[in-house]
């Protein structure tokens, strides 16, 4: 793993920070809930990347184990999310979040 040691930890941290920022910006800009979900996945995976990189450099396995938890939770979240999106699409035939404004006050 010689190539691995040449990449400094800071590079991984910056990469994951960039991925997280891209995800957050995408979530705020896009109006399609499925794309918004993909952006959330990007944010979660940025966290996963940082966990793995930090665990590698600290010489512990905790970070790798946490990634499995986060991946499982993300899968559960998407399962519920897609079910809700499908339920809304069947009723409204649109899933644009700007159309969801029945409640005002």
């Amino acid at each position: 793993m010689i190539w691995n040691a040449t990449v400094p930890f800071g590079a991984w941290a910056v990469l994951s920070g960039l991925l997280f920022t891209m995800g957050a910006a995408g979530f705020l800009v896009r109006r399609d809930p499925i794309v918004m979900f993909m952006c959330i996945e990007l944010m979660l995976n940025a966290g996963n990347l940082l966990f793995v990189a930090a665990a590698r450099y600290l010489g512990v396995v905790d970070g790798q184990v946490y990634v499995f938890f986060v991946m499982t939770v993300a899968a559960a979240e998407v399962a519920v999310g897609l079910a809700i999106i499908v339920a809304i699409f069947r009723r409204k035939t649109t899933i644009d979040v700007d159309e969801m404004s029945e409640m005002r006050g």
């Binding site: 944010m43 979660l44 940025a46 966290g47 940082l50 930090a54 905790d62 970070g63 946490y66």
Partner: peptide, 14 residues
């Protein structure tokens, strides 16, 4: 919000 939590925890860990 939970994505923020994960990334925050990863930062604390690193």
């Amino acid at each position: 919000a939970s994505a923020f939590f994960v990334f925050g925890a990863a930062l604390v860990f690193s």
